[in-house]
């Protein structure tokens, strides 16, 4: 694997980790016995909020060999319930164990009335929502003592009360709260198709300095609409959009996110290599940050 410690990383790009994959339990043994060339892994935080056993054993073993980032689904940052402090406490405990390069969750809400939908539900794009989010993001960042990354979610509906675009909404939140974005290129594509906006406009309008990480994933295309299933290969339209995002944002840590119908490790590695090739053609390498 590429060792980050021997690389002269220019200050501007110290957050470019290179090309990674989501860590999935199906691949634990493969990764530890083959030590594949992957620059970093992203873990799903909730999977490791347990007391012990296999999950934490493998987590520690992988953390010894690869840089990690943490990705959660249950912060429910946009919820109108109180912030879930017991969740945040568990998250902080895990942060102390993993020492991730950064942590992320989603720009959405997942729970209300103390009931968890286990889904990434969209927020109305309004001034009130922005104020609500900024206030909560600041509290979380203060408690975790670091900026957090929030990911744009795929959505299937637009609320009547929304009075701005998703990209303006995201920009306003990052500007006011100091949080960063995890841009999921596939989610941009999915939402663009479902709402009829131009995905490139979304990318062109997002503040360049706010993006810290990319997700690339697959979806299910039903013609009239697209569902963000994360169970397919990345499609050509999303690769094209990735190409465009690199032009705008430059060297951004990129990973393939597969949550379902998980193939053998080499297949995901090949997808990651494809992302690397697209970046390399543009002169984006981990080692020289051209």
């Amino acid at each position: 694997m590429t060792s980050l410690t021997h690389i002269d990383v220019p200050k501007m790009n110290e957050n470019f980790l290179g090309f990674g994959l989501g860590l999935r339990s199906q691949h634990y043994d493969y990764i530890l016995s083959n030590q594949p060339t992957v620059d970093w892994f992203e873990i799903l935080s909730e999977n490791y909020m347990v007391d012990g056993g296999k999950p934490l054993y493998y987590l520690d073993a992988v953390a010894e060999q690869y840089p990690l980032v943490m990705h959660g689904v249950s912060m429910s940052i946009g919820s109108t319930d109180e912030l879930n402090w017991s969740y945040l406490e568990k998250l902080k405990t895990l942060i102390n164990r993993v020492k991730p390069r950064w942590i992320s969750d989603h720009m959405c809400w997942t729970s209300a009335n103390q009931i968890n939908s286990h889904d990434l539900l969209p927020l109305p794009y309004t001034e009130d929502t922005i104020e609500h989010l900024v206030n909560r993001i600041k509290q979380v960042q203060d408690y975790l003592e670091q900026p957090i990354l929030l990911e744009n979610v795929s959505s299937y509906l637009t609320y009547r009360e929304s009075n701005t675009t998703e990209w303006e909404f995201l920009n306003e939140i990052t500007r006011q709260s100091g949080c960063l974005l995890l841009l999921d290129i596939n989610n941009i594509y999915v939402s663009a198709r479902n709402h009829g906006f131009d995905a490139k406009t979304f990318i062109n309008e997002i503040d360049q300095t706010s993006v810290r990480q990319f997700h690339l994933a697959g979806h299910s295309d039903f013609g009239t609409h697209v569902i963000d299933t994360h169970d397919h290969d990345v499609c050509q339209s999303v690769w094209d959009l990735y190409d465009h995002a690199l032009d705008r944002f430059g060297a951004v840590s990129t990973m393939i996110e597969r949550d379902d119908n998980i193939p053998d490790f080499p297949e995901l590695l090949a997808e990651m290599e494809h992302a690397k090739q697209i970046a390399n053609i543009k002169g984006i390498f981990l080692d020289n940050h051209a």
Binding site: S117, H118, D119, Y156, L157, Y159, R160, S162, G196, I227
Partner: peptide, 26 residues
């Protein structure tokens, strides 16, 4: 009633994507 009419998909269908996903996931 709270969402915008957009394109080919009906509002009922848009809402059902979420209600179905909830039950499928659980």
């Amino acid at each position: 009633q709270r969402i915008v009419n957009q394109g080919e998909l009906s509002n009922d269908f848009r809402v059902s994507i979420y209600t179905n996903a909830y039950r499928m996931r659980l």
